[in-house]
């Protein structure tokens, strides 16, 4: 080891003292406790995470309970059980439209995001040129790390009345065209938000595809498209499943893009929940709507689990790289 670390420094001395104290403390325990840690330690290690996630678990139960409480415009919450919120949710056509729109547009975004992520992830993993790979990684992570609001703002600037696209169209004497407040604009913006998620989920799966198998396929006469379709995609199926689930659940719960880009014309369920919560203060109805959203997305996720498996979402033990 390097001699440098042997030199005395207050920080090092303090660290050693701390470790010595810890060791002394540990020595007091019965020897078995640290030499062969009992399984109980394993459970103990899980407690913090279980408690944190417990907030959501308990909260979901609380939510279910709220959804059968009575709303009162003055007292807000009356602790009397009722099915009124659920009846209203099922009986109002406006709510059906929002739920159906959420599912339909989310499906479109999910399919497009996964389809576009496949070539991107593949090229990022396989490209030989290092600078090119870096460019692909940077263009993936800078938007990913920039957040939804800033990018929604970016889309407003791109698609707005005096935005970039209309400026370009204006050169050709077209427009100005109104792009905002349409389903197409919402899908486009959502796609840009979700694409990095899909790529990040799919790339590890492609990394695990043995390159030799692709070479074998092309030796056997398959062209690139056939190799991609018959070899890469089936082997990357776990990643595709993971990406589909992640993109679907995040998109189905999206709020910012429909609100800012959709301009109130392309509301998703999240916008409905927000309005119910803050405009009318109807907590029970908002709770019922939330529970319904969970039910719908869970049904889709279970469907994907059944058809392509849990994919990369599961935490695996052992094996190459986990």
């Amino acid at each position: 080891m390097s001699r440098r670390s042997e030199r005395w420094s207050p920080l090092l001395a303090a660290r050693r003292a701390a470790v010595d104290a810890l060791i002394a403390l540990k020595e007091r325990l019965p020897e078995d406790a640290y030499r062969n840690p009992p399984t109980a330690v394993g459970y103990l290690l899980l407690v913090p995470a279980l408690v944190l996630v417990g907030f959501l678990f308990v909260g979901m139960l609380l939510l279910a309970w709220y959804s059968v409480l009575t709303f009162d415009p003055i007292e807000i919450l009356v602790y009397e059980l009722t099915l009124e919120n659920w009846r209203r949710l099922f009986a109002t056509t406006g709510y059906h439209v929002i739920f159906l729109r959420t599912i339909a547009l989310t499906t479109v975004v999910t399919v497009l995001a996964v389809a576009l992520a496949l070539p991107y992830a593949y090229l990022t993993v396989r490209v030989r040129s290092a600078p090119l790979r870096k460019l692909l990684l940077v263009s993936l992570f800078v938007p990913f790390f920039t957040g939804v609001i800033v990018r929604a703002y970016g889309w407003l600037i791109v698609l707005g009345r005096e935005g970039v696209v209309n400026a370009v169209l204006g050169v050709f004497g077209i427009g100005p065209v109104r792009f905002l407040a349409s389903e197409g604009a919402v899908v486009l913006a959502l796609l840009q938000i979700m694409l990095p998620f899909a790529i990040v989920m799919i790339a590890p799966a492609i990394q695990n595809v043995d390159r030799e198998l692709e070479l074998a396929a092309s030796n056997l006469g398959a062209d690139r498209l056939a190799t991609f379709r018959r070899v890469v995609i089936p082997l990357a199926a776990p990643g595709i499943a993971g990406a589909t689930i992640v993109v679907f659940t995040i998109t189905a719960a999206t709020f910012a893009i429909p609100d800012l880009i959709g301009g109130g014309r392309v509301d998703f369920v999240a916008n409905l929940v927000y309005r119910t919560l803050f405009d009318s203060g109807n907590y029970p109805l908002a709770a019922a709507t939330s529970v319904a959203l969970v039910a719908v997305t869970s049904a889709v996720v279970v469907g994907i689990f059944r058809t392509i498996g849990s994919g990369t979402l599961g935490i695996r033990r052992g094996g190459g790289g986990g």
């Binding site: 279980l50 959501l56 935490i315």
Partner: peptide, 24 residues
Amino acid sequence: GIQLYLLLPFTVPLVVSGVVLLLI
């Protein structure tokens, strides 16, 4: 089962997580 439980933050839609935490 524990792994599935620990995935709850991802499987619960974000807006619902927000509502849940607001209520708690």
